[in-house]
Amino acid sequence: MLAILPLIFSNEYTLHLLILVAINVIFASSLNLISGYVGELSLGHAAFAGLGAYTTALISLSGFSPWLGLAGAVAVTLVVSYLFGLIVIRLRGAYFVISSLAFQMALFYTASNWIGLTHGPMGLLNIPRPGLWIPGVGSIQLNSKVSFYYLSVIIAFVIVMACKRLVRSPIGETWVAIRENEKLSAAVGLDRTKYVTFAFVFAAVFAGIGGWLLAHYIQVVSPGDNMSFDLIIGMILMVVIGGRGTIVGPILGAVVVTFLPEYLRGMGNWRLTVYGVILGVLVIFLPHGIMQLWGIGSSRLQQGLFAGLAVKRKG
C-alpha cells in the first residue's frame, strides 16, 4: 500500500509530508527503544540524529558519495553513543534525563560555534542527493520527490522491522524486564548495563540513519534544524501520542505529529501553545497514547513476562 501512495497523492507537497513521516517514523521508533522499552527518557536522541546529519554532510560535501556518508553516520553515532553510554547508562531516572539533555546541549553549542567545521548557525548547504545504481536501469540520482519517497519508506520499513525483531528477541524481553522490575531482573542474573547499552546504541544508530536521510532530503544541516531542543520535544510527542513501548505507537505518533502542524496552521502563533496543551492532556488522561484506546498499555502486554523469563533461564 505504501508503494502506491505516490500514485494517489501525486502532488509534491503531500509527498513532502509523506517523506517527513517516514523520517519521523525512524526517529520515533528508535527513541522508543530506549525510552519506551527500557524506560529511560533520553533527551539526547535528537543529538544523534544531528550527529548523523553533520557527519554525512561533511563527508558528501568533501566530494565523497552520500553512501559513504551513510557508513560514516553509522560509525560516528555508534562510537559516540557507546562512549556516552559508558557514562549515562549507570544513571537512572532524573539523572539520565538531565545528562542526556546536557549531551544534547553540548553538541548543539559545539555545532553552533565550531564555525570552521560546521559554519555555525548558518549550517552546511547544498548537500547532494544520493545516487543509486539499479541493475538494468543504470545509475540514477534520487532527485525527484517520488524516488526519495521510496528510499525513505524502504529505510523506515527496514528500521521498524529491525526494532520489531529486537523487541521480540530475548534482548527486547530483557529491556522490558529491567523496566518493570530492575531488582528482580538483577536477581535472575540480567546485566542491566549490557542490555541498556544495546538499546542506547541501537537507538542512536537508527537515529543517525534518520539524520542521514533528513540531511540528504532537506539538503541543509544546521544547529537549529538538526540539533535543537525543539526536535527532541517533537520526537517525544510522537512516542507519547502514539504509545510508548509498542511498535505501532511511534508510527501512529509520527503520522499525527507530522500532519498536526498542517491542521493547526490556521491558529498561527498559538500552534505551539496547542502542542503543549495536547501533550499535557495526553500525559494526564492517556499516558500510553493512542494505543491505549485499544487497551494495549505497554505494561499490560508484558504481564507474566517474568514467569516466562524465569522458566527460560532455568531451562
Partner: peptide, 26 residues
Amino acid sequence: AELEYTYFTILLTIAISLVLANTVNV
C-alpha cells in the same frame, strides 16, 4: 508507580513550559 511518575512529571512540566512560553510569546 515510580517509572510512570518520572515520565508523567517530566512530560507534564515540559508541556506546561511549552504552554507558558508560547502563550506569553503570543
